[in-house]
Amino acid sequence: MGIMNMPIFTALTDKMRWHQARQGLLAENVANAETPGYQGRDLAQYNFADHLGGGSSATISVTATQPMHISVGGDTSAAFGAQRMNSFEVTPEGNAVSLEDEMMKVTTNMSDYQAVTSIYQSSMKILRTAMGRS
């Protein structure tokens, strides 16, 4: 098995592709912010567990221990497909894109992409060092 075929590297590569696809959708949302009737789109959340083959069967769950805690739940079968966003703000023309929200998503997406590429590069460097290559 080649280094690039290791499950962690394929998952990191998929995550980077997911961020690239999301950046494209967010750019479309910003570009159509003034288009009457336009509904913004976003990708479903990426889940590493869905993309790592084999691995551990251990699971982690979140439990609210106090009644005032926020309950946390999520869709673990998320796919790459684009989905319509739920927006609370709709202009009189029917546009449901908020530029402020979209720019926050763009910034978050960009920093997450940089974090994934950093992890990928560090992992490659560690493996090269372990194999005796610099």
Rank of each mutant, 00 (worst) to 15 (best):
I3Y: 12
G74S: 08
N95I: 01
V30S: 11
S61E: 11
G53I: 11
D75C: 08
A130R: 04
G2L: 11
D50R: 11
A115L: 13
E89K: 13
I60F: 09
E93F: 06
I119K: 13
S98G: 10
G132Y: 02
A64R: 01
G73H: 13
I126C: 04
R17S: 06
T13R: 13
F9L: 07
A79I: 13
M4D: 15
K125H: 08
R133T: 07
D50F: 07
S118Y: 10
G81V: 09
S111K: 10
N5Q: 09
A31S: 07
S57C: 03
V116K: 00
A31E: 07
A27K: 07
K125I: 02
S111V: 11
T10W: 02
D101A: 15
E28P: 02
A44H: 06
G2E: 10
A96P: 00
Q20G: 06
R133N: 08
R133W: 04
D101V: 08
F80V: 12
F88M: 10
A96I: 01
G24C: 05
D50Y: 06
K105Y: 05
L127P: 03
Y38F: 03
A79N: 12
S118A: 09
F48E: 15
T10V: 11
S134V: 13
R133L: 07
S87Y: 03
A58H: 03
T35A: 03
G94A: 02
R84G: 14
G74F: 15
